[in-house]
Amino acid sequence: MLPESCQPGPIHDDPPGIERARPCSLAVVIPSYNRAEYLRDAIDSVLAQDHPDLSLLVMDGGSTDGSIEILRSYGDRVAWVSEPDEGHADAINKGWERTRSEVIAWLNADDCFASPRAARLACQYLAASPETDIVYGDCHWIDERGDDRGIAYAQPFSLSFAVVTADHCIPQPASFIRRSVVERVGALSLDVFAKDREFWLRAGLHGRIDYWPRHLADQRNDEGISYLGRRVAPAIVEVTRSFYRLQGVPEDLLRLKPRAMSNAHLRAAYYAWAGGRQWDLYLWHLLCALASDARNLPRIRWHFRRYVGESLGIRKPQRPIPA
Rank of each mutant, 00 (worst) to 15 (best):
A291Q: 11
R306L: 03
L297M: 15
K257D: 09
A264F: 10
E102H: 09
I68M: 05
L216C: 10
P322R: 12
G313I: 09
P234C: 05
I151E: 13
G309Y: 10
P258A: 05
I177R: 08
A260K: 12
I209C: 11
F199M: 10
D44E: 15
G275I: 00
E102M: 04
P16A: 10
P317T: 03
R319P: 06
A233E: 03
I225V: 12
A272Q: 01
Y211D: 06
A274D: 05
N296W: 02
R22I: 09
S63A: 02
T240D: 03
I11T: 15
V181C: 06
W106I: 00
W273E: 01
L297K: 15
K257G: 10
A122V: 04
D196N: 02
D143L: 04
P298R: 07
S175T: 15
R301I: 13
F304G: 01
D252M: 03
C6D: 11
S242E: 04
D13V: 02
S158D: 06
L107H: 10
A294L: 10
R117I: 08
A294E: 13
S160F: 12
D293F: 14
D293S: 03
I170H: 10
E238H: 05
S175R: 10
I236W: 02
F176L: 04
P130D: 13
S160M: 04
L71K: 00
I104V: 15
V308L: 14
L253A: 07
L253G: 11
Y282K: 04
D13C: 07
S115E: 07
P15F: 09
D65P: 00
Y270W: 14
D293H: 15
G313Y: 03
P250C: 01
W141Y: 14
I209D: 05
H303F: 11
L216G: 01
G9C: 07
W200L: 06
R241E: 13
R267C: 11
A118C: 08
V192K: 07
D167Q: 15
W279F: 02
L253V: 09
R301T: 14
R245W: 07
P116C: 11
Q155I: 12
S5Y: 15
S242Q: 08
L266A: 07
F243P: 08
A166Q: 14
D252Y: 08
A118T: 07
P171R: 10
A114Y: 02
N34S: 02
Q172V: 07
